[in-house]
């Protein structure tokens, strides 16, 4: 990946990255009720990191987010799998979800849903996969 030198791009992306990440977070949590969900949020987050990598370079991204993205993929897959398996313990078919409405402080009446955990797995897997791909190719150049 070429060494970033565009100050303008760098400065803007510093701000924009957080806006995108926040938007991704929003999409993730509202996914069950309005457009959004794990896939979109995951891709969006990866896109934000990609922007960072384009504006600066791969090393910067590595420094800022020192995760092994392969591991994140694995964790995501594991979470998704565990959510599915959890249902088996309640005598339900694989991947059957449960949900309920709870009165939480500050948030008021909130819906808590195991599908959200599953979606978290999807989110992590997508972020992990996308970043693994991008970083792998980027570093090879």
């Amino acid at each position: 990946m070429p060494k970033g030198s565009d100050i303008f791009l760098q400065n803007i992306s510093k701000v924009v990255v957080f806006i995108i990440l926040a938007f991704a977070l929003y999409l993730f949590f509202t996914g069950h009720g309005s457009p959004g969900g794990g896939f979109i949020a995951g891709l969006m987050s990866a896109g934000a990191l990609l922007l960072l990598a384009l504006a600066f370079d791969i090393d910067t991204v590595r420094k800022v987010i020192p995760f092994d993205f392969k591991l994140i993929t694995a964790i995501g897959l594991l979470i998704a799998l565990c959510t599915g398996t959890g249902a088996l313990f309640f005598g339900e078919p694989f991947l059957k979800h449960a949900f309920g409405y709870f009165q939480l402080p500050l948030l008021g009446k909130t819906e808590l849903h195991t599908a959200l955990i599953f979606d978290l797995g999807v989110y992590l897997a997508v972020v992990g996969v996308t970043m693994t791909i991008l970083l792998t190719i980027g570093e090879d150049n």
Binding site: F39, V126, V129, I133, I137
Partner: peptide
């Protein structure tokens, strides 16, 4: 939606393979 995401993975794979 499923297809888009899978397609992304496969395209990336193809690209790297040809690279």
């Amino acid at each position: 939606l499923t297809s888009i995401v899978i397609n992304f993975g496969i395209t990336a794979f193809f690209l790297v393979l040809s690279y």
